[in-house]
Design a protein around this nucleic acid. Structure first.
Lengths: 182, 182
DNA sequence: GCCAGATGGTCAGGCACCGAATCATCTTGC
DNA sequence: GCAAGATGATTCGGTGCCTGACCATCTGGC
């Protein structure tokens, strides 16, 4: 279970929101459960979340990919680098999507000639997935631009700030069960 | 243009990713553009982004809503609170979705009896949207749970940490054009 | 006044994902 | 060695959102 991969999320159903602090305080009078600083921070995150996801998608579109397709390619690229081969279920696990979704991704990647499916030597229920020569060239060709853009995206933050950010995000992450739970 | 609203994002196409630091350093030898700390931070954000979006959606599903439908209701709730009324295009603008999407959201909300459409007094191209009594009760009924959950989500962070987090997110936001641009 | 362009709502078509059901194959316990 | 259950891939139907094209209505300059 390695990975250098990407995201998941069903429908980025989202919408942006512009918190209005005085509005929140006004509403807080009627709803004592409302914590203005929590809402403001949460909304800021959701907004960035959507901006980032949509910019990411635009970036991949420029290369003729979607985020999902990119993740599959990079997973294969990394795995083959270590001489491993992957099954659809393994890629789905690494990419955090369902096997049903993976079937669809692989179908279009195969149609585009970027990957191929080969019989699994031991288990006839599965097969293994491989980059074609064209697929390998393709991903190698786009990685420099990809990495350069991410470096630029994060350039406004110092290394110390990046560390702090990851810490804070981890704390938010620890609170997420509160949203789903009961 | 007020707001206390929500997200947007076309396809939450995403997938989670588990950065493997040594893997990154290995790849960095082949791709000098790769900045491991930038990638790690970016992947952490994307992962949280997806977790958060999907937990948010699960939360709304429990109340029989989607994020989009919730945003419409809360916008109407806030607007009517100030005695204003909104047109579909205004709600779309506030919610950061297209007018076409708003048509669909309003259709289902109207079918569920939560909102109603009324002729616009001056412009026959448009109409105004209003919460029904049922719609108002409904949103009031769910807001305490909603606000309580967000407060719990953010509970792991102190107020100072929340301020820091918002600052850092704003810096990331400023780098986003690098993803889309050329 | 009147027509060109702006603006508002809708429709059709598409995309990316999911869950549940299905079918094939493997594995276990006996 | 053989059923019962586990596991893998696929298909089908559904959701939520998008873009682009459409028609209706309003507005401004002449």
């Amino acid at each position: 279970m390695s990975a250098v991969i990407l995201p998941r999320s069903k429908n980025a159903t989202p919408m942006k929101l512009v918190p209005r602090y005085e509005r929140l305080k006004q509403l807080a009078k009627r709803f004592p459960e409302l914590d203005p600083s929590a809402i403001e921070t949460c909304l800021t995150m959701l907004r960035l979340s959507n901006e980032l996801t949509s910019a990411y998608e635009a970036h991949f579109t420029r290369h003729g990919l979607s985020q999902g397709r990119f993740v599959v390619l990079i997973q294969l690229f990394i795995a083959e680098d270590s001489g491993e081969s992957l099954s659809p279920a393994e890629i789905a696990e690494l990419s955090q999507c369902t096997r049903a979704t993976m079937t669809g991704l692989l179908d279009t990647l195969e149609k585009d000639g970027l990957i191929s499916r080969a019989d699994h030597p031991e288990d006839r229920r599965m097969y293994t997935v491989h980059l074609t020569a064209r697929g390998r060239e393709f991903i190698q060709g786009m990685l420099p631009d990809h990495y350069r853009r991410i470096a630029t995206l994060m350039a406004p933050l110092s290394h110390a700030e990046r560390d702090t950010l990851r810490d804070l995000l981890a704390k938010v992450s620890s609170g997420i069960p509160a949203l789903r739970d009961p």
